[in-house]
Design a protein around this nucleic acid. Structure first.
Length: 274
DNA sequence: GTGACCACCTGGCCGC
DNA sequence: TGCGGCCAGGTGGTCA
């Protein structure tokens, strides 16, 4: 499931291969992927446009053109593959960007959860959906006082709030578990009761976990892989996520799995006390 | 404003 | 072997 490190990996991989390619034609085979504008307008506006840059904001992948920017959210299982025009289209490839040079960028999404927006590039940060995002983990304004302010009215478990993209953007279920483990915070701890020290730990470990994951190309769990079919290696560095019943790497107590806000959550009952 | 719940989707897994 | 049911989870919408 692509989170910030996986999207960053996809962005960097695509950047090497599709920058300055010009779109000849776009084929939308599953219309619901296109959230805005209409499919007809989406296809028309992208024709003859050149990809000038690739960016990322939170979990959103951004294809920058001269006047427009294409936002793509991979959600659970979205992937991009660069293929030749002659290659057979499989049933999970829902949006196909055909380039002038005969290659194609294909958006594959088994579960069809991914969404794309085509927006005017000017003031894009002020437009939906980017205007609803919180701070990037490396934003200098992500401070203890920022978190304390955001958390002070939240009575939800910290695990749930870490997944709230309007506070810190880019954290998903896997990394939330890892961040809380390293911060020695119980996933069910009520957010408004976090101390300054705990907020500081969350900020520090958010950065370190995501940096480490990016350096290893993200995490490959279940069906996620980046473009080119590249598998991330961070799953070998996961300390608690997906390790139910195994020994905690610190105290050797058995890792427990619970549900928090409907999400599978892994933690060590000894290292992470409420 | 806040929080709980559900729908969107399909493939993998498990039990019968 | 085949079938049904459950689970995985990011996000947006609805409702209390």
């Amino acid at each position: 499931m692509p989170e910030l490190p996986e999207v960053e990996t996809v962005k960097e991989t695509l950047k090497k291969h599709i920058l300055h390619k010009k779109i000849k034609r776009v084929d939308v085979r599953y219309p619901k992927i296109i959230a805005s504008p209409s499919v007809e307008e989406f296809v028309t506006r992208l024709k003859n446009q050149e990809i000038l840059d690739m960016r990322r904001r939170g979990k959103w992948l951004m294809f920058v053109f001269k006047e427009d920017t294409l936002l793509s959210h991979l959600r659970m299982e979205g992937k991009f593959f660069l293929k030749e025009h002659e290659e057979e289209i499989n049933r999970h490839e829902h949006v196909i960007f055909e380039f002038m040079d005969g290659t194609e960028l294909r958006y594959q999404d088994t579960r069809k959860f991914g969404r794309m927006y085509l927006l005017k590039s000017d003031d894009i940060e002020k437009r939906k959906p980017l205007n609803e995002l919180g701070l990037e983990p490396w934003d200098p304004t992500l401070t203890v006082s920022y978190l304390k302010e955001k958390y002070k009215t939240k009575r939800l478990p910290i695990k749930t709030v870490l997944l709230d993209q309007s506070i810190i953007t880019g954290i998903g279920n896997i990394y939330a578990d890892e961040i809380l483990f390293l911060s020695h915070i119980h996933p069910l701890k009520v957010c408004s009761k976090l101390t300054k020290k705990e907020c500081e730990q969350i900020i520090d470990h958010t950065k370190s976990v995501l940096n480490h994951a990016i350096s290893l190309g993200g995490t490959t769990i279940r069906s996620y892989e980046s473009s080119e079919g590249v598998h991330g290696r961070f799953q070998h560095s996961l300390l608690v996520h997906n390790h139910e019943g195994e020994a905690c790497p610190v105290c050797k107590k058995s890792i427990i799995k619970i549900k928090v806000g409907g999400r599978g959550t892994y933690y060590c009952p000894k290292c992470q006390k409420k």
